[in-house]
Amino acid sequence: MSFNISVSPHIRLPFDAKSIMWVVVLALLFPAAAGVYFFGLPALVLIVFTTLVAVITEAVCQWLAKRPITAADGSAVVTGLLLALILPPTFPLWMAAIGAVFAIGIVKVLFGGLGFNIFNPALAARAFLLASWPVAMTTWIRPFDAVTTATPLFLVNKMHQAAPGYWDLFIGNRAGSLGETSVLAILIGALVLLLTRVIDWPAPAAFIGSVALFSWLLGHDPWFAIMSGGLMIGAFFMATDYVTAPVTTKGRFIFGLGCGIMTVLIRYFGGFPEGVNYSILFMNILTPLIDRYARPKLFGGR
């Protein structure tokens, strides 16, 4: 008989990359469900369709590049699902499809696929769609009755109108992207990720904390600042994206802090009512730099 040989260690933790992806999918189902509850059937169609397009794109791209087809490893599902959750509920399907193709085809596969993309695919696709079809990307509806309206952030920061109540913001009864409205659902999803140790706390804590702090310092309502817009979903699901955020605890903290500062800058001084998307994309550029300098202290090193 012949034994197997390999280098140590000979045992591995029974938790692989695939399982991580599916835990994230599970966690994302909570905000997705909340979105469907508030915005109805079209939201469900958008979610399913975008996710499908993302997975098919990944498979086709890998087939074209003559690589093993790993579209079922869950990472494309995460990207598609995330993208759907940050689109307006009534977004045209064909535009969503282009967004998904851009996310997977350009932002992910061209850079070498899972693990090599520099930018968060879903966020880059959202920025792409926002620049391409600004009207469709900024057409929001009210929950339940689907009447066109503006997002709370826009109303408060750009039109200087009153904010909706905290309870409505918390459970998600407001206009906004499909999955970003319900803070409650996102927190449940985040809890799943934190308890399974899929994500750790530094990035989201620094992100949300700095947005609250700087909003307060600038004379804005910190509770409103953290519960409106895409901050929650961005902090828990995108600033924690392994591939595009720094790898060390220190680095993740810096990353979250940078995201928070950028978000505050864009929200209160910039042209856009919401800055979470661009702030995370911008910090993605800084990730290699942070990675290089935010390394843990070497044992026995000075």
Binding site: S2, F3, N4, I5, S6, V7
Partner: peptide, 9 residues
Amino acid sequence: KIKANYSGV
């Protein structure tokens, strides 16, 4: 001919 199955890098 092999005496053991190698797995690794």
